[in-house]
């Protein structure tokens, strides 16, 4: 029992990180139809900036928002310099552009920061909390809480604010949205800024547990992308469920089957789900640009 509980704790912690990354994917996709493969770099920028600031003696309470801000600025720049000029490019071109941007950002981070592995102490100390024979780090609670807050925020923002409705309208039909007076450009700027901020926040929260270095963005993006597609692209519930599910599959496979094939198990489940439900768990059937 304690054993199962420990596996679940591990799965939820890791899954919450995947979910936070997936939520970032979801927001940009919803506004622009782009799956942003540079999303992982926002996570790294958040983590490395926080690590550098905290290392320089800045209190975490100030360092964390600054790191999120750094991610936000980079996200805006990415949209302005790489995505907007591409206009209505085909899907593969957009994939290549975001991958190119991630390579560029990695090169830049290697210059701005360094190639070492970084971490800082958790916000509520390092002493593990025990319950029913399992243990959890206080920082894991921060990560899980953070993902839930981001999820709730997105649900509220997209559904109940003017700006959020603008983003949704822009996603479903950019021309129609523009015709009814929605500033589609502002909507897309906003979605990139918010999404990058979410990614950077994930990095800030996760780094005490996962550590970070300039080149982990690819793997982070890969997991986040998997979670996004498992849940169904464009759905916030899907991103949350997809992330948690992949985390749990990995932990339970490592615990009960074979740690060698825990990553494989996640991909097998994704393939199986897509065979049965080509739109992912929560995705809506819609035609896509190709």
């Amino acid at each position: 029992m304690a054993e199962l509980l420990q596996f679940l704790v591990s799965g939820v912690t890791v899954g919450a990180i995947y979910a936070a990354v997936a939520l970032g994917f979801t927001l940009i996709y919803n506004a622009t139809g782009v799956v942003n493969f540079a999303q992982g770099e926002f996570v790294v920028i958040g983590g490395l900036t926080a690590a550098a600031l905290i290392g320089a003696g800045v209190p975490p309470l100030i360092a964390a928002p600054l790191a999120v801000l750094a991610g936000l600025v980079v996200g805006l720049l990415l949209y302005r310099l790489a995505i907007r000029p591409a206009g209505q490019a085909p899907l593969v071109s957009l994939i290549i552009i975001t991958i190119g941007a991630s390579i560029f950002l990695r090169g830049a981070m290697q210059m701005v920061f360094d190639k070492q592995i970084h971490r800082y102490d958790g916000f509520s100390g390092e002493a593990p909390i025990g319950f029913l024979g399992a243990t959890i780090l206080p920082q894991s609670l921060w990560i899980i809480g953070g993902s839930l807050v981001v999820f709730a925020f997105l649900a509220w923002f997209m559904g109940h604010t003017r700006a959020g409705r603008g983003i949704r309208a822009t996603a479903s039909n950019r021309l129609a949205a523009a015709l009814v007076g929605i500033n589609t450009r502002a909507a897309m700027n906003l979605s990139f800024a918010l999404s990058a901020a979410i990614g950077a926040l994930a990095g800030v929260l996760a780094t005490p547990v996962t550590f970070t270095s300039y080149d982990v963005g690819v793997l982070v993006a890969l997991k986040g992308f998997s979670a996004t597609m498992l849940g169904g692209v464009g759905s916030a519930q899907g991103a949350l469920a997809g992330g948690l599910l992949i985390g749990l599959i990995e932990a339970l496979t490592a615990g009960y089957v074979s740690s060698d094939y825990k990553d494989a198990a996640a991909f097998v489940v994704i393939l199986a789900v897509l065979f049965l439900r080509p739109q992912g768990l929560f995705g809506a059937r819609m035609t896509e640009r190709v």
């Binding site: 596996f7 547990v209 996962t210 932990a251 490592a254 615990g255 740690s259």
Partner: peptide, 16 residues
């Protein structure tokens, strides 16, 4: 037991 180079949590393997 094994783990991937970028894994965030190895408590399941260590529990085993």
């Amino acid at each position: 037991e094994t783990y991937g180079p970028n894994d965030a949590d190895m408590t399941p393997q260590l529990t085993n």
